[in-house]
Write a protein that binds this DNA or RNA. Structure first.
Length: 277
DNA sequence: TATATTGTTACACC
DNA sequence: TGGTGTAACAATAT
C-alpha cells in the first residue's frame, strides 16, 4: 500500500514529465474524479503544462501552469504507470483495473490503475492546498523534523498508543500501517505503549528509526507486499527487509521469539514481544 | 458468501 | 473547542 516511501518514489520518477503537457484525459470511473464533472476536469487540465510534481503527505500533487494542482491519493491499490505509448485511445479488454488515463504530449500517457477503486483524483487551487496543509502535521523525512518536534507531538497525543500517533496525519505525515509497525520494531518499542510513557532515550530511538526506516524504504523504492508498483510498473524491494509486518506466527530474526499480532485502532499491528518493550 | 484489506472522514461524547 | 474512540465507507478478490 502506498505510504510515504512509495509516494516519494513515484514523485521522484514523475519528475520526468515536468515540462510536458496534458493532451487528453479518459476515465471509465468518473466517481473517483472529485470534480463537478469529468468533462470539466478534462477541460481544466488539457493544454496545461506540468510545472512541478511533489508530495503532501501521501497526496501526489501535479502542479499545473494554471496554478491549479491535480491531487492524487492512491489509497490502497492505486498505481500510476508511465507508458511510452498506448495502442488505443480508451482502455481495451484485458485492462480491467485501468480506470483513468492522462495523455501527455511528449511522454505517451500516465495510466491510473486501481483494483479496489478507493483512490481519488481532484483538482485543487492554492487555497485548497493551504487548507489541507493546515490540517496536516510535519513531514518526517524533512531535515527540520527534530527530536524536539517529536517530543511535542508525543506530549500532544500522550494518552494515545504510540502506533496510532505515528499514523496520525494531523501531527506527522505519511506513515501507514506497514511502516508504523516496522518503525516501532526498529526502535524496540511496543506499539501498545502510550505516547506519553516513552522516556527520553526511547524518543531518541524512535526519532532515529522514523527517519532511518522511511529513508531506507525510499532507497529501496518502497514495499511491494501486494499491489504497489512504481511508475514503471516495477516492484520495490523493502518487502525483503520487513521484520514484523505480517510476520505473525513466524520467528523473530533477531531472537527467535514468535512475532505476535494485535489489533490497535481496528488495524492489524505486528511486533516481537522480546525485542520490543 | 462472508471476510479482510486501508486511509480517511463523520460523528458521538466528554 | 478539541481530543478521543469508534464505525462507516469506498470496491474487490479470495
Amino acid at each position: 500500500m502506498p505510504e510515504l516511501p512509495e509516494v516519494q518514489t513515484i514523485v521522484n520518477d514523475l519528475q520526468e514529465i515536468v515540462g510536458d503537457q496534458f493532451t487528453d484525459f479518459f476515465s471509465d470511473f468518473p466517481k473517483a474524479v472529485k470534480s463537478s464533472s469529468q468533462e470539466k476536469f478534462r477541460g481544466k487540465i488539457v493544454g496545461k503544462k506540468i510545472e512541478s510534481v511533489n508530495r503532501l503527505g501521501k497526496i501526489i500533487l501535479i502542479n499545473l501552469s494554471s496554478k491549479e494542482s491535480i491531487a492524487i491519493h492512491l489509497k490502497m491499490t492505486g498505481k500510476l504507470i508511465l507508458v511510452e505509448s498506448r495502442k488505443s485511445k480508451a482502455k481495451s479488454a484485458g485492462e480491467k483495473h485501468l480506470h483513468h488515463i492522462f495523455y501527455l504530449k511528449k511522454h505517451g500517457a500516465l495510466e491510473f490503475h486501481d483494483v479496489r477503486k478507493f483512490a481519488t483524483i481532484s483538482l485543487l487551487d492554492e487555497k485548497d492546498v493551504d487548507l489541507i496543509k493546515k490540517d496536516y502535521g510535519i513531514d518526517p523525512i524533512a531535515t527540520l523534523f527534530s527530536k524536539k518536534d517529536l517530543d511535542a507531538i508525543l506530549e500532544k497525543r500522550k494518552n494515545k498508543s504510540i502506533k496510532l500517533v505515528l499514523m496520525d496525519n494531523s501531527v506527522i505525515l505519511g506513515i501507514g500501517n506497514i511502516y508504523a509497525s516496522e518503525i516501532l520494531s526498529d526502535a524496540g518499542i511496543l506499539p501498545t505503549k502510550t505516547a506519553g510513557s516513552l522516556n527520553s532515550e526511547e524518543v531518541s530511538e524512535l526519532h532515529t528509526s522514523i527517519k532511518k526506516i522511511l529513508k531506507k524504504a525510499i532507497r529501496l523504492r518502497g514495499t511491494s507486499v501486494s499491489d504497489y508498483r512504481d511508475s514503471r510498473g516495477l516492484k520495490g524491494s523493502f518487502q525483503n527487509e520487513l521484520k514484523v509486518y505480517k510476520k505473525h506466527g513466524q520467528k523473530c530474526k533477531t531472537c527467535d521469539t514468535i512475532i505476535e499480532k494485535v489489533i490497535i485502532g481496528q488495524r492489524s499491528t505486528f511486533f516481537c514481544p522480546k525485542c520490543q518493550s
